[in-house]
Design a protein around this nucleic acid. Structure first.
Lengths: 218, 218, 218, 218
DNA sequence: TATGAATGAGCATTCATTCAT
DNA sequence: TATGAATGAATGCTCATTCAT
């Protein structure tokens, strides 16, 4: 609900002076506002006016930067995905051997969603409400970048750490599990933060739920 | 002044004669239509008129059975969940030992979504667009019934098959993985049917992605 | 399946170019249109679209100025009452002694409804269709301003012109009579304009229908 | 708001047996219900279903007796007017001389509305919401029966009680005043019952608000 | 360039009326 | 004859998008 304020500008009172900002800065502010609003209210329910209000610009300005509501949403989503990728990439770069990398990346992935819960919302919104003439942007990213990760998987297989399944299959399984854990964590109430569950999930992923005979014999 | 002319093409204009049916039958038809339309168009975008058209009834009739669009949606969702549960339950009842039960249930779960892809849509719609003053109905069901499954898990632990983690934690992990696989399968293109991937997923779940040393030593 | 074809007759289709106006002016135009439409069609039957058409604006613009149909109606009603009051007040200010004032005010009152028959309709609409958790706006005005008129009555009593009844009672009687005459004048057909009947009504009010003995003896 | 009760008729439980009543009785019950509902909710807002519920019949039955909602309303209104007339007529018949008759009739008129406040509502509803291609039914009755009352007026003029104005004019004035008092009484809050104000109103009508010089000289 | 007033297509919901039983 | 399930036209209100300033 917006407020319409009938205000007589008292002489001396200053209307926030029309701030002229670098286009890139404006765009970033609008995207941040859009992310918040879309996550909170859902794509359909969200009012572009709200985004404009939160960004501190006029509604027309939003449309100057993004031609439609849908484009605005997709840009906000893309921003989330870029940040998720940057986050994962940084984690990988900070670890040495492939197994440490794998763990680091998964921890970063889970941590990202603990810190940016709006991201989950945007993923779900896209899936739920956008025409989606194909895969969602999340999986477009997955496709676009999975080669980068495949190397890591192959390395782990050559080390004898991972089973010899097709690397792509392994990545899909990892993604399914991680994505499922993330989405589930927001669907059910009172789940622990993802970060706290990360190590267990990684463990299960690597070693399975079943009792390892070798562990007993060891 | 502009004119808006509304023209009904008389054509054969059969105006399907008013049919009276048993309430339960009508309700079932409307729910089936609602499931299809909501899954195809999304909760917000879906027009109740479309549901009515597909069900072959007047719009008023839809409102006679379900007081609001939201109630209609929730009823359609509930129907899906009931069917999913019936399906899983039947699978469990058809298997003898706990491990066979676990496999059967997971296969049934995946198979259900292959056969009823609309169900996934409804789950996601609910998450995305309904006020949701708490957990989604999916997880309400999970809560309501997880005791039934816990016995199965405990049995597997006593048999020395599953690790001694809290049964609830195990169920959550299973659910995350399965749910993630299901949702992912519709997000990305060209994935194999879930049914075909089920055994692999179950295998990974039990035994992990890592090479089993015991297998080597064996 | 039946078809509904919506056809916009393009014709000259001038699509009146969007005009921007001062808010006060727009509001006044919309209120004038609302008064006409509500008076002609009744509150419930009136379609907000009709108001918009008559005001020469889009429907959304009407809602920009008045948040609901009811608010629009109340504003139109208030406008009528303000004008009625201004009219009465002007009449009083233009007369010297209290008796002349009383006559002037009553004449102005009746004249107002001759000139603004829509006003009567709005009064009746309010009574008939608005939730009205209390008195109607007409009587709220009556309450709010009757002190101003009471002075006039008291003056007439001190001059020995009016009987020593409670001034408020006298005002109520005057109002009942005047209001009744106004409403009746629109209910029955072929009544003379109120203006023409005003002097007779005032006479009856002051002197009664009964023969005055004193007049005979005089 | 209606309730839809899903009730399993337990064996032995009796559905209210379909009562077959004289048509006239049914009609009277429906009219009474309609009067109540229309008065309480207003013509447009009133739901025919509510009338049916209150009358204890099916909706179809209401339509069997009255072809449209409007016809139902008009019939309810007519019933009120008939009762008002009967009431007034009885009062007149019970008094001897014309002046006593006049007082008795006015008292009966006011008393009627104290006892049947729904009647006022129906009068106002008719005025407010019915297409009204002419005078309201109230004034149709006034026209139809005013000759009966004219005799009374003429008698009072011949007795030297009332001024020699056209009898019709006098009746119109009486009606305006009485009608105005009745309507006003429901518009403003906290007015005394009409019955209590009746004698004062009659007094003012006959003798006026002004001080009677003759009374002083007497 | 930035703004926000103006627009009108779109949609949920209601309810008078019909008609199969 | 009595019923109430079925119908669909009608309408208040929203909000993405446009465009005059």
């Amino acid at each position: 609900m917006r407020f319409r304020v009938a205000m007589t500008i008292i002489h001396g009172a200053q209307k926030t002076p029309r701030v002229r900002k670098a286009a890139a800065e404006r765009e970033a502010e609008i995207l941040a506002a859009a992310t918040t609003v879309f996550a909170r209210e859902g794509y359909r329910s969200a009012d572009v006016q709200r985004v404009a209000d939160l960004a501190g610009v006029g509604k027309g300005t939003v449309y100057r930067y993004f031609p439609t509501k849908e484009a605005l949403f997709r840009a906000a989503l893309k921003r989330c995905l870029d940040r998720l990728r940057a986050c994962s990439e940084a984690a990988r770069a900070g670890a040495d051997d492939p197994l440490a990398q794998l763990r680091a990346v998964l921890r970063a992935y889970f941590g990202f969603f603990d810190d940016n819960p709006e991201a989950i919302e945007l993923f779900i919104q896209e899936r739920a409400e956008l025409p989606g003439d194909g895969a969602s942007l999340y999986f477009v990213y997955f496709e676009a970048h999975h080669q980068e990760w495949e190397g890591m998987i192959i390395g782990l297989q050559e080390n004898g750490v991972l089973r010899r399944l097709p690397p792509r299959t392994i990545l899909e399984l990892l993604n399914d599990m991680a994505y499922g854990a993330v989405v589930s964590s927001t669907l059910s109430l009172n789940r622990a933060p993802l970060r706290e569950r990360a190590d267990l999930i990684i463990d299960i992923f690597l070693n399975g739920l079943a009792v390892r005979r070798s562990q007993h014999s060891a």
